[in-house]
Structures are given as structure tokens and as C-alpha cells.
């Protein structure tokens, strides 16, 4: 294969990488040679790089990450445990859906983050307050996507299984569950985004540790390079989780590649 064909094949990642490298160079050179600026208000890639190295071998970053992850995992697990069964019942029983849908839709559409100050007062600035906030934000995608998945079960397929003498259990295992899976994975992706918002707001608001607190604290103390390290680390985690879930979506449901659900 010639060089030109190689370029065509990888043209997207090559251009993407080039543009990132280009921006970093431009940023660095501009602040070094063209407009030397106040280091309290601006920073440049080389300084961020140094800070990154220091934090990577330091203790604080890892401790912060561990603390944030714990609250996140607690809240997130709770939203899975509550959201999926609730969504399944809503999708399967019409009356349950009628009863819960308006309330849950209203809550889903509202900025529940506005409750954060109250939750923090109620449950404290530690693990519990943050976990509750994460749960409150992350539970809705699970509920709605599971419900949509169950409802999407094709009546034709249900009849096919029934016509072969399938029992109720077969119906759940062979038709409804596989059909719901891609919806739940897509819901997980949305829930991760919302859960991260919960962690960040919780830690901005009233915390003394955690990655969100660190970002805010570095900002308050004008340590911009360190603040950017926090943002980049969080970004990298968010991108990794999102892309992982995208891959998972393709894996569990290759037939609906790229389709957006809710």
C-alpha cells in the first residue's frame, strides 16, 4: 500500500492529532514569545506538563481521585439497583407507567442540581451527600432507557416465542432482556455524564477533598497549571468511560450501530 492510500485510510486521526499538536504549539509559542502574560491568569502547556509530572508522582491527585470515585461508585450503583427494576416495571405494566411517568419526566427535565445545597446540609459534605447527588442525577437515564427497551420488545417476536411453546420466563430471557440491553448501555453512557456533574457540583460546593475540590481549590489559589492538570485528568476519565460505553453499545447491539437513544 502506498503512502497516499495510507493517508486516506487514517486521514481522520492524522488530521485530529495534527490539530491538537498544532494548538499546543501555538499556545506555547504565543505565550512565550508574543504576549507574555500574567501567570496568575494564564498558563501554557510546558508549565502544565511540569505540574502534571509532579502530580503524577505526588500523593494528592491519587487520593482525590480515590475519594471522588468512591462517592461516584456508591451513587452510581444505587441508581443501577433502583433505576433498572423500576424502569422494567414501568415498561412492562401500563398502569405503573401512567402513574409514574409525569412525575419522573418532570424531575428528569428539572435541574435537580439545584437541590445540591440542601442535600449537602442534610447528608453532609462527605461521601453520603455526594453519593445521594450522583444517585439523584444518574437514576433517570436508567429508568427511562430500561422502560423504553422493554416497551420496544417486538410483539411479533413475543408471538414467535409463544408459538413455539415458550413460557413466560423464555419470553423475558430470549426476547425482552436482549432487546433491553442496548438501551441500558446507552442509558449508562448518559448516566455517567450526569453522575460526573453530581460529583463535581458536590465537591465544588462543600468539600475538602476530591478531584472537584482540587480543581476549585487550585483556581482559588491561582495555581492554574495544577488546575488544568485536574481538568485534563477528569476529561481523560470522562472520554475513556464514554468511548468504552460506545464500544459496548456496538458490541451488545451491532445491528443498531450509531443510533442515538434518548
Amino acid at each position: 500500500m502506498g503512502l497516499k492510500e495510507k493517508y486516506h485510510e487514517y486521514h481522520r486521526p492524522i488530521l485530529g492529532m495534527a490539530s491538537v499538536i498544532g494548538l499546543i504549539l501555538l499556545w506555547e509559542l504565543t505565550l512565550t514569545y508574543l504576549i507574555p502574560v500574567d501567570p496568575f491568569f494564564f498558563t501554557k502547556p510546558s508549565l502544565i506538563g511540569t505540574a502534571f509530572r509532579e502530580q503524577l508522582f505526588g500523593e494528592r491527585l491519587w487520593r482525590d481521585l480515590a475519594i471522588s470515585s468512591r462517592a461516584f461508585i456508591w451513587g452510581f450503583s444505587l441508581s443501577v439497583i433502583v433505576g433498572i427494576p423500576l424502569g422494567a416495571v414501568m415498561g412492562w405494566r401500563r398502569r405503573v407507567e401512567y402513574t409514574l411517568d409525569p412525575l419522573l419526566t418532570a424531575l428528569y427535565a428539572s435541574p435537580l442540581v439545584a437541590l445540591a445545597p440542601l442535600l449537602i446540609i442534610f447528608f453532609g459534605v462527605g461521601l453520603l451527600g455526594k453519593a445521594v447527588l450522583v444517585f439523584l442525577l444518574a437514576v433517570f437515564p436508567f429508568i427511562f432507557n430500561t422502560s423504553a427497551g422493554v416497551k420496544s420488545a417486538d410483539p411479533l417476536l413475543i408471538n414467535v416465542v409463544r408459538s413455539f411453546g415458550g413460557k413466560e420466563l423464555d419470553l423475558y430471557l430470549k426476547v425482552i432482556l436482549p432487546g433491553t440491553f442496548p438501551y441500558i448501555v446507552a442509558g449508562t453512557r448518559l448516566a455517567i455524564g450526569r453522575g460526573l456533574v453530581g460529583i463535581i457540583v458536590g465537591e465544588f460546593y462543600a468539600a475538602s477533598e476530591g478531584i472537584g475540590f482540587a480543581i476549585q481549590n487550585y483556581g482559588d489559589t491561582y495555581r492554574l497549571p495544577d488546575m488544568f492538570v485536574g481538568i485534563i485528568v477528569l476529561s481523560a476519565i470522562a472520554v475513556a468511560l464514554t468511548e468504552l460505553l460506545r464500544k459496548a453499545e456496538l458490541m451488545v447491539a451491532p445491528w443498531r450501530a450509531g443510533e442515538e437513544i434518548r
Binding site: H11, R12, I14, L15, G16, M17, A18, S19, V20, F41, G193, L196, V197, I200, V201, F204, G212, I215, Q216, Y218, G219, D220, Y222, L224, M227, G230, I231, L234, S235, A238, V239, L241, T242, E243
Partner: peptide
């Protein structure tokens, strides 16, 4: 397609990260 490829890394990264992380920076600025 070219602009798409050039901007894709930023859009992906910024979209996946909760935009609230920028708040301390904006308050600083």
C-alpha cells in the same frame, strides 16, 4: 470533512467532560 477531522478531538473531549469543570477558571478570568 477536513474541518470535521480537525475539530473532532476537541468536540469529543469537551462534550464528554462535564462543562462545569471550567467554572473555577471562568470565575478566575
Amino acid at each position: 470533512r477536513t474541518l470535521d477531522a480537525l475539530s473532532d478531538p476537541y468536540v469529543t473531549a469537551l462534550n464528554a467532560t462535564p462543562r462545569l469543570v471550567w467554572l473555577p477558571l471562568f470565575i478566575l478570568w
